Computed example of a mutant assay.
Amino acid sequence: MDWHTLGSTPFLPPLYWRAALKRKITGSTLPEQGLRCRVRINPNDVAAYRKVCGFADSPILPATYPHILAFGLQMQLLTAKDFPFPLLGLVHLSNRIRIHRPLGGVSELTIGVQACNLQPHSKGATFDLLTTAEDSLGLLWEAESRMLCRGVKLEGEALDNPLPTPTQVSELTRWKAPADIGRRYARVSGDYNPIHLSALTAKLFGFPQAIAHGLWNKAHTLAALGEHLPAANIELHVEFNKPVRLPSEVTLYCSAPGSSGELLLKGTGDLQHMVGKWQPIA
């Protein structure tokens, strides 16, 4: 992997233009370049994020927060000329976070992003968007988001290995996903994908109404689990199934507190929105 280090996080508006203008698949290989940047953590931004995602105040950063720090780098990577797939239309299938040490006392991180692991899929092709966060001691946090691009033709067998639906889980809590949560989450995350903002903009992309961001669903779930989970040496893996249409109410089911367990996020009429598990890092 060839790394390009940026002096500051990318300015988002031009990247949105680039994303809006690119509608065609232009290749079937991923670029061999990753992006890196040092990022300062702004306590006011973290506080605003906590409020939108339901996290209690804490000296420990929310487990999903480094994704927010990485968003500009991810946008720059995924809208670059040599990136083969259009950003609008990518489907976020799953997200796996590994927290190596507690995310406390952190004021500055080096964030890295890269795309790798291009694989055939029954509906096109998937790739992993890898994100890392390092502090002065080394690797602190890492994540992989599996993205689907429909309509890509690749040689080889499609390997789909979904997480089984958890059975040993009980209801923990429920919450409402209000009609404006896509806009509120966009303001704290920078992710203004039209499918999340309003019914009007979602209809342009074939959705009858706006849907919640997958990472908002995951963040709100981790906020609800709170002390249920270890603060470090933990891998948190979720798969996004049916989208959460806005507005709606969801119910979180999970296993007992401990170093490993399972979770399930359901909507009305038994709709399965998200399945997940947590365990120590292998």
Rank of each mutant, 00 (worst) to 15 (best):
L88N: 05
P10Y: 09
M274H: 05
I111M: 05
A19P: 13
D57L: 02
D270C: 14
T110W: 00
Q168E: 14
E134S: 08
G72T: 15
P102N: 07
L21S: 10
V46G: 15
A56F: 09
Q74A: 13
P66G: 06
T165H: 09
S248T: 11
P62H: 08
V250D: 03
D160W: 11
G156S: 01
S136F: 09
N217I: 06
T132L: 00
T5I: 08
D82S: 15
P230K: 00
E32Y: 06
L137D: 15
C37N: 02
A70K: 05
L90D: 07
G105A: 02
L229H: 08
G27T: 00
R101Q: 15
P62S: 05
A223E: 06
T9P: 15
L129S: 03
L140N: 07
N217H: 03
A125T: 11
S107D: 05
Q114E: 12
G54T: 02
S145T: 09
F11A: 01
G226D: 12
D128H: 00
D135C: 06
S136R: 15
G34R: 01
K266L: 04
T110P: 02
D82Y: 02
V188S: 02
T110E: 09
A210Y: 06
Q33T: 14
P31T: 00
L103E: 06
M75R: 00
L21W: 15
